[in-house]
Write a protein that binds this DNA or RNA. Structure first.
Length: 570
RNA sequence: CGGGGCGUGGCGCAGUUUGGUUAGCGCGCUUGACUGGGGGUCAAGAGGUCGCCGGUUCAAAUCCGGCCGCCCCGACCA
């Protein structure tokens, strides 16, 4: 591509709204432009990167036996009502109504659509297994978009769905997709940390997220520093901390704690540390009310509680319900003498405690010297607490958990039969009995990958694209475009490199060298060729690798070979 | 939705507290000349509903009210 004929609207300074490197550099380099909060236009450079990433994904999907389709962004309401997600999917899909008052949503994900599609034509077990995928725009009505391409309202996703006759078949399809993902990220040169995760609004089991560790990621993952345990903070587990020593009084006692509603206030008033206190959090669940107990310095993980109570519609009790259940204002709830029908679920760590502090279920009062089994009974023990940096690993004896920020680039999970049942994706097995297809779901955040690459590969001057995703693999800088001889040399090089199969950006614009160098660094092609002074004086071309600054001078006739060899390690 | 910040030429900003000529500066842009190895120099230019609406005032970028948009933190989340 000749730069003079191309569209490269670079910015010398990044717009003020961009804070993180990927956002700033993608804007500065003319890869993207904002249209509205969380909505972007991809310019030629950005589109090229998208295409490269998509192509790698396509190749690996196809290699894994998946087949590409393209589904609509507009989804009829009735399909989402069949799955029950019209009102429950979070964030609520963006809804639209046509002139005939038909209701649609802009698809945030395509389980309903693909399952309906398969259900239309699925008859026999002989039709399975099948895995279909698409690369398509998704809409999610995010409460708040952030970080440029990291979290958008509109984004590009590769989503694949597998249909099998059995759990065993699903396992095979899942493994094939998992392996494909490993290959995709190897080719993209993005080191992945695969973590255990929650399935969220999609549902399912065996959820794994492919995480890129990154300062500006919005997810937190915990990694053991000793074994290979890694998990999203949403579901990370840790060993209960050692218990506290019994205190002196050794028996339950009511103390005044006027207006002390928070752990901090109670601790200050009673002069104790938060790890000697047990928090009681009341929830409304499918099976009535539950009280969740965690140590005062711990955060409750609602995913874990939801799993423990086996309820879909769990929510925190409101102020009136708390008043009703405890007879006290919010802030003074405790496990002692709660109504019989409130299920008490306690975090394992509570078991390690003795003589602790709890709310007294009366206004402005707490108990000290409370003990499990002495003062109240626990109905159910469970892992309820958020893991913390420095917690001991639950999987090995020696490790501790390290918290790291990360960007989720892909996920895989086993859906089972939720959608195939709801949407009628059934088939006849070899004995003529009707069976429900077993599904898996596999997503890759294509546009987010671009942000991930830039977050991972950049320096102060710009982006450092790995060859595989670079918009152009090599950039020729002709520093003296008015010198006919040099121009002829550069034109030749341009042709030769293209003939060698490379994507080449040929900067033959009549601009000062400084601008060309600065833009070349910003745009980040892996290899840069300079045709200029040295070419005129010595007949040589200067080669520079963007990644490590490695430079060499090569004879004209060796240039293509040298570029190719530099690209080997780019 | 809660908290915070911002909105002035394409981009980055000053000016707003304390209302008062013609709204400035840097970059970018146009033209010309010089220059030609890291966003070069000089000269001459173009470009502004000061986010929008309303109000106060002789007078509003500046004060008041409402609204909109954007960013960050939180809540939520593949």
């Amino acid at each position: 591509m000749r730069a003079s004929e191309y569209y490269i609207p670079t910015l010398r300074e990044a717009p003020a709204e961009a804070e993180i490197p990927s956002h700033r550099l993608l804007l500065r380099g003319g890869f993207i432009r904002p249209l509205a909060a969380g909505i972007f236009t991809y310019l030629p450079f950005g589109q090229r990167v998208l295409s490269k990433v998509e192509q790698i994904i396509r190749e690996e999907m196809n290699r894994a036996g998946a087949h590409e389709v393209l589904m609509s962004v507009l989804h009829p309401r009735e399909l989402w009502e069949k799955s029950g997600r019209w009102d429950t999917f979070k964030p609520t899909p963006l809804r639209v109504t046509d002139r005939a008052e038909r209701h649609f949503c802009l698809g945030p994900t395509h389980e309903e659509i693909i399952t309906d599609l398969i259900a239309m034509d699925l008859d026999s077990y002989r039709d399975l297994p099948v895995t279909l995928y698409q690369i398509q725009v998704k809409f999610r009505d995010e409460l708040r978009a952030r970080g440029g391409l990291i979290r958008c309202k509109e984004f590009i996703m590769k989503d694949a769905y597998s249909f099998d006759t059995s759990r065993e078949g699903l396992d095979r399809s899942y493994d094939a997709m998992y392996d494909a993902y490993v290959r995709i990220f190897e080719r993209l040169k993005l080191p992945m940390t695969v973590v255990e995760a929650e399935a969220g609004s999609i549902g399912g089991t065996d959820t794994r997220e492919f995480m890129l560790l990154a300062e500006n990621g919005e997810d937190t993952v915990f990694m053991c520093d000793s074994c290979d345990y890694a998990s999203n903070a949403e579901c990370a587990t840790s060993r209960p901390a050692a218990g506290t020593e019994p205190s002196e009084q050794g028996r339950r006692e009511l103390v005044d704690t006027p207006d002390a509603k928070t752990v901090e206030q109670v601790c200050e008033m009673l002069d104790v540390t938060p790890d000697r206190l047990v928090k009681t959090l009341l929830f409304h669940t499918d099976n009535g009310f539950a009280a969740a107990l965690v140590r005062g310095d711990r955060a409750l993980n609602e995913f874990k509680l939801a799993r423990a109570v086996e309820g879909d519609k769990m929510r925190m009790a409101d102020d009136a319900e708390v008043q009703d259940l405890t007879g006290a204002r919010v802030g003074f709830a405790g496990p002692v003498d709660l109504p019989e029908d409130v299920t008490i679920i306690a975090d394992h760590e509570v078991r390690e405690l003795s003589d602790f502090v709890t709310g007294a279920n009366q206004d402005d009062a707490h108990f000290v010297g409370v003990n499990v089994d002495v003062d109240f009974e626990v109905d159910q023990w469970a892992d309820l607490r958020e893991a913390c940096h420095g917690d001991r690993c639950s999987e090995c004896d020696t490790g501790t958990l390290q918290a790291r920020r990360a960007i989720e680039l892909a996920h895989v999970f086993k859906l089972g039969t939720t959608y195939s049942e709801a949407l009628g994706a059934t088939f006849s097995d070899s004995e003529g009995r009707e069976q429900v297809a077993v599904m898996g779901c596999y997503g890759v955040g294509v546009s987010r990958i671009i942000a991930g690459i830039v977050e991972h590969y950049h320096d102060d001057d710009g982006i450092i694209w790995p060859r595989e995703s670079a918009p152009f693999e090599a950039a020729i800088l002709l520093l003296s475009p008015n010198d006919e001889e040099l121009r002829g040399i550069a034109d030749n090089l341009y042709d030769e490199l293209q003939d060698a199969g490379l994507d080449v950006l040929y900067d033959e614009r009549d601009l000062s060298p400084g601008i060309k160098f600065a833009e070349a660094d910003l745009l980040g092609s892996p290899v840069r060729l300079v045709v200029g002074r040295t070419t005129r004086n010595e007949g040589k071309v200067e080669l520079r690798r963007r990644g490590d600054g490695h430079e060499e001078l090569v004879e004209l006739e060796d240039t293509v070979h040298a570029v190719l060899s530099l690209l080997e390690d780019a």
